[in-house]
Write a protein that binds this DNA or RNA. Structure first.
Lengths: 332, 332
DNA sequence: TTGAAAGCGCTAACAC
DNA sequence: GTGTTAGCGCTTTCAA
């Protein structure tokens, strides 16, 4: 390459990396030569000296069972797609690509840490489906720059983005009260997931502020089926309920079905409020009133934080908490 | 590292790469030293000499609009998750990670080709949402090993996996006839997508074989809403229909809603058969009878083909066509 | 069976 | 403002 342009390799490097102090004429010559021979710099050689790969790992942790070879469940959840979309929207303009990794077993977790230390990627974006995921601690110990999608359990010095789930649930409570509903209940998510806990607690607290001391609830697993079944249990316990807060849209879709099956019309008999504002919310009939969870924005912010940590290794961990919003549609 | 073990770097390299002709004692010493100091080889240095990265690109092409910064639509489609799951199931045991890339514009396509030539990845797995995607040709021209998810339009010397869509549609036709349905119709996918065309043509042909010369159809866009609307058009045109083949499960879900909305019970009044056997099929009420599309297996095969091409650059392109299967549930 | 030595292609001091 | 030089950390002939 340098030969073709008749200059030194150092100059070519300077041109490619846009370093100033290059004579415009020479620069043009080099650019011309690059175009002619279709030169592309070798990434490995560059990484070797810069110690940067220009890639970040997107780690899905706690996804899939221990022996499940296909981590399909989380992947087919629209939530995952939204996270990926958000990350990409931020990373792509910067020429950085996400490398997908799974860490669902002890072994795969070790592999992920090892890959990161090898320099497969400059840092990690971690999305855990389980609380008490040991990966954040392992990443911190390995001194790998990393950012989590939600606050880790325990005290781990690591950056994260999160949603104010309690505030979102309170929005739902306020809405139901505003609609004049007096016999409300909730289909909550799996209570070993902190976000599910926070949504339930936030809902209960807000209802308490409105004078409702007790709110019945039934636990689901964030899936369509579990939402349908949880709704049926609630209906059995409290046939006269007139409002329900469901901790995610997918379960709300199932709940909608259960309600219809039991002859309730929505929102006339029972108002339903979901959570996430995912694609399921608009695919429902009636479309779901729900709480917006700005997953894409959060994912983009997560990427931003990671790049900051990569650029400035010693940096103090930071947290960015997003605010939810009520999205009114037809269901409540 | 070599110093710690008291041997040469060459020997360490041999041990790490499992090359025979290493004295067992020395090997043990080296392994010991590796464990003690927690040594991990540097990937960039290794790639520089081996000219392999141990990564493959997973390229989503034609995803998102030209100006859409967030390629969310395809990402939140469960189809994408299934592809990723299948790819990972094959690649992960081999220590290879997929790097996510989007190629939805002229510019991003050029970037993808450039990244691949730079050695960001050893090859590409291409999933196009549009027919006539120019990327396959560009990849072939750049001599980048690549495998497609579906047969490319035009004649391109490139490997691909595909489903026998026609056979799948025929399975649906046979089932409807077997159920004694005589006034059948179809909600097809966007007819600029080859798979959608093949499903419709396959259905029409099979119905013709059963003596039904004419099959009304209405076109949707593979989304819930479009399925619902297409079903309504069909119902308006042919209120007495008693069987419908919907070209994917998501649209079938919408169709189910339209049917219920118009007072038809499924499968009593109208039998409904979907396509894909996606998670939507079991989330429906009633659960969908559908055509199994082994996306995960196909994606895994795609990865296998790619590794073959990477190992043996000159290899002739190959195609692997998968067979669909009828999955009977409650809707038809 | 092991070691010495030569790069892989690039960037970054450092001199000019 | 540009070229020279020295590596980055590994694999891989080639000798020993």
């Amino acid at each position: 390459m340098a030969r073709v342009a008749g200059v030194s390799r150092a100059t070519v490097s300077r041109v490619i990396n846009g370093i100033r102090n290059v004579d415009p004429d020479i620069q043009a010559t080099v650019l011309q030569a690059i175009a002619t021979i279709g030169y592309v710099p070798n990434r490995a050689a560059r990484s070797l000296v810069t110690r940067r790969t220009g890639a970040v790992a997107l780690v899905l942790s706690g996804a899939g069972g221990d022996e499940d070879p296909s981590p399909s469940p989380i992947l087919t959840d629209p939530f995952f797609g939204r996270v990926v979309a958000g990350i990409i929207s931020f990373l792509r303009p910067r020429g950085i690509h996400p490398v997908l990794m799974f860490a669902d077993t002890e072994q795969s977790r070790a592999e992920v840490v090892s890959y990161l230390r090898q320099g497969d990627a400059d840092g990690a974006l971690l999305v855990s489906t389980h609380a008490a995921d040991p990966l954040p601690v392992e990443l911190v110990e390995a001194e790998v720059p990393a950012v989590l999608f939600a606050r880790p359990t325990g005290s781990v010095p690591i950056s994260y983005v999160d949603l104010d789930h309690r505030a979102g649930a309170a929005l739902a409570a306020d809405r139901l009260v505003e609609l004049g509903r007096r016999r409300v209940a909730s289909v909550c998510g799996p209570l070993d997931v902190p976000a599910a806990q926070a949504r339930l607690a936030g809902f209960q607290d807000a209802m308490a502020r409105h004078g409702h001391a007790y709110v019945p609830y039934s636990e689901g697993g964030f899936t369509y089926d579990s939402g349908e079944r949880a709704m049926e249990r609630l209906l059995a316990e409290r046939p006269d309920l007139d409002g329900v807060f469901v901790a995610n849209d997918l379960m709300a879709q199932g709940a909608l079905h259960a309600l219809r099956h039991h002859g309730r019309s929505v929102p006339e008999d029972v108002a339903v409020i979901g959570f996430d504002d995912s694609s399921a919310a608009t695919a429902c009939r009636p479309p779901l009133t729900t709480i917006r969870h700005p997953v894409e924005d959060m994912a983009a912010e997560m990427a931003r934080l990671l790049l900051d940590h990569i650029d400035e290794p010693g940096r103090t961990p930071r947290s960015v908490i997003f605010e939810p919003a009520l999205i009114v549609r037809a269901s409540g």
